[in-house]
């Protein structure tokens, strides 16, 4: 087992544990902090497999934007947490768990499909990562600004809409006076 693989396992463990924490933590604030840990660790995974640009983007967007928003959400809404303490809903719990179990079965089926795939020769196993990453970034840039120019522009428009929409929705309605 290489050092790389070891590092991956450690980060993966952190992700899983932090994710469980985000879901089951009693205090919503703790959950938000666990989510931040997950976002960071996922950025680490991207770095480990050589997608440095994505790793940077992950840190910028999730830590810089989403995490901030989540904390804001907690601050603005959840000064008092759920009465009764448990984050898990009581009603229909078994139905939910059953569904989740079935979904896991579905995931296993997908995995089976995935594990049968053969990794092609052009994969990172056959190329030095550092040397290759620069060209990878160039490809990414070319792809994004040539082939995906229209989606890129559309998504920028979407962001603008979200900006305005969020302001409109969250705005405190002024009194008629």
């Amino acid at each position: 087992m290489s050092l790389e693989q070891l590092l991956f396992l450690v980060v993966a463990a952190v992700i899983v544990l932090a994710a469980l924490g985000a879901v089951f933590a009693r205090r919503i604030m703790h959950a938000a902090l666990c989510a931040v840990v997950v976002f960071t660790a996922v950025g680490g995974i991207y770095a480990i497999i050589g997608s440095y640009f994505i790793a940077v983007a992950q840190v910028l967007i999730y830590i810089g934007a989403v995490a901030t928003v989540l904390v804001f959400a907690v601050m603005l809404s959840g000064q008092k947490d759920i009465a009764g303490g448990s984050p898990i809903r009581r009603q229909a719990r078994w139905k939910t768990v059953l569904t989740w179990a079935a979904f896991v079965v579905g995931l296993v089926m997908v995995f089976q499909f995935t594990l049968n795939l053969t990794v092609p020769a052009s994969g990172p196993a056959n190329a030095p990562m550092a040397a290759e990453s620069a060209t990878s970034l160039r490809f990414l840039g070319q792809l994004l600004f040539y082939d995906y120019l229209l989606p890129f522009e559309v998504i920028s428009l979407l962001l603008l809409l979200v900006l305005i929409g969020a302001v409109v929705i969250a705005r405190k309605e002024s009194d008629p006076q």
Binding site: A32, A35, I82, T99
Partner: peptide, 15 residues
């Protein structure tokens, strides 16, 4: 699926 808190649901979706 299980969360009763809206913020936690948001977090889960981000995960």
């Amino acid at each position: 699926l299980l969360s009763t808190n809206a913020v936690r649901m948001l977090i889960s979706i981000e995960l």
